[in-house]
């Protein structure tokens, strides 16, 4: 599993994006805010809590084709599955890679962002917790959807239509500061669902 993880991480960081790109993306999504809504402190603070979730959703959603599609199309997925007999190992390794590459940068720059948007220290920790548990669940969801849609035509819009209704509970509870235990529960539920459904999808396409 470690070897697989290393390979995936190497490929993701080497070929397409680095920590720098992803964190720049988050900063830029949030920089739009004052341009759109003016520089009112109180308003910005409220909007920040929402837009940061849009940034996270976009970053997870737009990159979901990198989870399985690239490996599936050049045939590497077959080789990986032959080498690692349990599909669950592969899927968990994909979770970790996707989270590390496309979510972790957000948490690294979150302190700076909250400083820019006047978030108090207490709120910062709550936002951090919410985003952490929410991003886990969203990665689980995106993984099983991408396993299911491997054979579909490559349209990110179809995948967005499937994924966004599944994101809605996370977004609803994510923007409320005290609800991180609910997000944790949702993430655990989506983990169980995701393991089964991703394995089912992969098995269908590889056989």
């Amino acid at each position: 599993m470690l070897a697989l993880l290393k390979r995936d991480l190497y490929l993701a960081l080497y070929s397409s994006s680095s920590f720098f790109y992803t964190s720049s993306f988050f900063v830029l999504v949030l920089i739009i805010l004052p341009f759109l809504f003016g520089t009112n402190n109180v308003q910005l603070q409220v909007l920040f809590k929402g837009i940061i979730w849009i940034g996270l959703s976009l970053s997870i959603l737009l990159t979901m084709e990198r989870i399985f599609n690239a490996d599936y199309e050049d045939g590497n997925l077959d080789i990986i599955i032959q080498r690692y007999p349990s599909l669950e190992t592969i899927i968990i390794s994909k979770y970790i890679t996707h989270w590390l590459v496309y979510c972790l940068p957000l948490f690294i720059i979150l302190p700076i962002l909250s400083f820019l948007f006047y978030v108090s220290l207490d709120n910062f920790f709550l936002i951090f917790l919410n985003l952490f548990f929410g991003s886990l669940g969203m990665v689980f969801i995106v993984t099983f959807v991408s396993a299911l849609t491997l054979g579909a035509k490559r349209t990110i819009f179809l995948k967005a239509i499937i994924v966004i209704p599944l994101f809605v509970p996370f977004l609803i509870f994510g923007t409320n500061l005290e609800s991180w235990p609910i997000l944790l529960a949702l993430s655990m539920m989506s983990f169980v669902l995701s393991i089964y459904v991703s394995a089912y999808g992969l098995r269908l396409y590889v056989e």
């Binding site: 299911l148 849609t149 579909a152 179809l158 239509i161 499937i162």
Partner: peptide, 8 residues
């Protein structure tokens, strides 16, 4: 989503 997935 169901209908589009089936069609695609």
């Amino acid at each position: 989503a169901y209908i589009f997935l089936w069609k695609s």
